[in-house]
Nucleic acid binder design. Structure first.
Length: 664
DNA sequence: TCAATCCGTATC
DNA sequence: ATACGGATTGAC
């Protein structure tokens, strides 16, 4: 791909390339027409990366299409050169990226940056071109199919699989049963879609889940036919794998949230596992949630979609309520055979007479349950919401939270005899005294994973105790009697399941200042319970009358999510409405707001200061609400306002998020 | 009346 | 960034 030295003439056929510019400026987020030099014509196709002269400087761009004529009035410039030989956009993904940019009030370039890994020239020449006929010889498309008995245990499970087998379109929310081998179930769906000749995307929250599903895929698909895309690979491997997808060599793609954008050939099925995990929310502009992108892509491309998990989000409930998706769940009878016994004990629990149980702050039932499991030779999972030793301490007299004198961060204790240390800046505060009453003594307001492990170790002397939390997460633990203390999301998997799980400090799980607390508590509890075998027992340390606890005991994720959805409707929050959060300095936000032509249904919900630890200067966050149907108009108006500001060269862009995960 | 200069805007 | 057009200014 040599640079054109002063192009003599434009290509004789389709001489115009419509180019999207790689610029973050919203007012430049539209196509610009360039003449294609005759000698580059063969290499410049829709989807090609190109370099163009734009406003006097060279800039990267992507060719959206080749056309015969331009409607631009002025003189057209020639394309400077092509970059590499690879069309990185497909007709499918180009439409998707534009739709995502539009829906979340972002720019096309921002979405491409998330979706297309940086080019690596060596990888580009190394990856073999896929044989276009390879699909027919792919072993995945022949032979006997996977055993699908696992899906027959679910209502509507067989119907969903059958639809995939026929190459049809089906959309479902899947409430998995406890101890379900979900990686295998998802791999089976991928295999079915492959047998129907279609490509598949599987999106999971994190690297551990990628590893588990990867293993399951290997049991049902030939090795070369699936590929994992994760950021931890390094630039060359990352680009090479992505290219093997782009070129059609790999038709099943597995990865964390950005895998939802993968350029899979003849995509037929998108799977999103555990959409309630915050890792599914993209922290980079335009802040689109992987589940929502999957829904959008499924609509645009007419593919099947499965959103699965042990919990269920209000967003999924909304897809069910509108009839867009069907529920796949087990009936009461099937559930009974899969569910461990789940009991809740609230604050008024019977304190154990046993001194060991008392010192481990375990209710008598929890203690007995754990002991029974250990006696059966099975491991016990202990879920603790917080990591560390004593992650929150306060004045022993008036319970004023202990804070750092320098940065106002929360103080923690790393051991029983330790000095209070700031969680934010790491400074020690040996001379702390209560700002209200002057007392120098601290009490624990929350007990973390390592202190819990210490206490449990005392309660069960001689039993191996392991901790999985923070930066030291265990993927698996060996079967056999042991106690595993883990924070939510860090629970290790154990072959054949845990014999028991103790879910401690439920009050802490339900007292976080977050719109989604109940949904998140249910999800965290359910994910832990799912690791317990059918004959095991679970004790939740939360009041049994709480709706989330009730739903959990019934293993009724859909009912819980419906209730959440009703609450959101009452409060006027997404997904029932559409919300925008505008973040910036107070004057920037005010200026921005004055430029937005809001839809008629728009309401200002007021603004809150952004917490100091999350931004440099003083910023505020303004919330706007519109009716769900005005979501498109709102995004358009926000994009237009951002365009005006960027055209005026406003020094600091304001940040706009649609339907943000966290409101606080 | 015309050239020099300034400002805002578009950038193909 | 840079180029362009329209408006503004100032000197003849």
């Amino acid at each position: 791909m040599a640079a054109a030295s002063r192009p003599a003439s434009a290509a004789s056929s389709l001489p115009i390339a419509r180019v999207a510019i790689d610029s973050p400026l919203p007012h430049l987020d539209r196509p610009f027409d360039y003449l294609v030099p005759e000698d580059l014509s063969d290499h410049i196709v829709a989807g090609s990366r190109v370099r163009v002269r734009f406003a006097g400087r060279l800039i990267d761009g992507w060719v959206l299409e080749r056309v015969q004529a331009s409607d631009h009035d002025g003189r057209l410039a020639f394309l400077q050169r092509g970059i590499g030989s690879e069309p990185v956009l497909t007709p499918d993904t180009a439409v998707l990226f534009r739709a995502v940019a539009d829906r979340w009030a972002g720019t096309f370039a921002d979405v491409v940056r998330l979706a297309v890994p940086p080019r690596h020239a060596r990888a580009e020449t190394a990856v073999a071109l896929a044989d276009p006929g390879s699909d027919r010889t792919d072993p995945a498309t022949g032979g006997t199919g996977p055993d699908l008995a696992g899906w027959q245990r679910y209502r509507a499970g067989s119907a969903f699989v059958g639809q995939l087998e026929r190459g049809g379109t089906a959309r479902a929310i899947w409430n998995a049963m406890p101890s379900e081998d979900w990686p295998l179930r998802l791999a089976e769906l991928a295999a079915v879609a492959r047998r129907a000749g279609r490509g598949v995307i599987l999106v999971v929250p994190d690297a551990r889940d990628v590893a588990r599903v990867d293993l399951a895929l290997s049991t049902v698909l030939p090795a070369e036919s699936h590929v994992t895309l994760s950021a931890g690979l390094g630039p060359e491997a990352r680009y090479r794998r992505w290219l093997s997808v782009r070129r059609g060599a790999a038709r099943v793609v597995l990865g964390p949230r950005s895998a939802v954008y993968a350029p899979v050939t003849d995509l037929g099925l998108i799977i999103v596992w555990d959409d309630g995990d915050d890792l599914q929310a993209e922290p980079r502009a335009p802040y689109a949630h992987a589940r929502d992108v999957a829904v959008l892509r499924s609509s645009l491309a007419g593919t099947s979609l499965l959103i699965g998990g042990f919990g269920q989000t209000a967003e999924s409930a909304m897809l069910l309520r509108s009839g867009w998706a069907r529920l796949i769940s087990a009936d009461r009878f099937t559930l009974r055979s899969a569910c461990p016994r789940i009991t809740a004990v609230g604050d008024d629990f019977e304190i154990g007479r046993d001194a060991a149980a008392r010192s481990a702050r375990l209710p008598a039932l929890s203690f007995r349950t754990a002991r029974a499991s250990l006696e059966d030779g099975l491991p016990v999972l202990v879920q603790v919401p917080r990591r560390g030793y004593l992650p929150a301490v306060a004045c022993v007299k008036d319970r004023t939270p202990a804070r750092c004198a320098t940065c106002n961060g929360p103080l923690t204790l790393a051991s029983a005899e330790g000095i209070p240390t700031c969680r934010w800046c790491g400074r020690t505060a040996g001379d702390w005294c209560c700002p209200v009453c002057g007392s120098r003594r601290l009490r624990a307001m929350a007990v973390g994973s390592s202190r819990t492990a210490e206490e449990i170790g005392r309660a069960f002397p001689g039993v191996i105790t392991r901790i999985s939390a923070g930066s030291r997460v265990l993927d698996t633990v060996p079967p056999g009697p042991s106690v595993v203390v883990a924070t939510p999301g860090a629970e290790p998997v154990v072959e054949c399941g845990y014999g028991a799980a103790l879910l401690l400090d439920g009050w802490s799980m339900l007292s976080r200042p977050d719109l989604r607390v109940a949904e998140e508590a249910f999800r965290r509890w359910a994910n832990a319970i799912a690791l317990v075998g059918p004959s095991g027992s679970v004790v939740i340390n939360a009041h049994p009358s709480l709706p989330s606890v009730q739903a959990l005991i019934r293993w009724d994720a859909a009912g819980h999510a419906e209730r959440e959805l009703a609450d959101r409707a009452e409060l006027g929050f997404p997904p029932v409405t559409r919300l925008a959060a505008i973040t910036g300095t107070p004057s920037d936000v005010a200026e921005f707001l004055s430029l937005v032509e809001l839809p008629a249904s728009a309401t200002e919900l007021g603004s809150v200061p952004v917490p100091e630890d999350r931004s440099e200067d003083d910023q505020i966050r303004l919330l706007l609400r519109v009716a769900r149907g005005d979501g498109v108009a709102l995004a358009e108006a926000l994009h237009a306002a951002a365009a005006i500001r960027s055209a005026r060269k406003a020094p600091r862009p304001v940040r706009t998020e649609l339907d943000p995960m966290n409101l606080g």
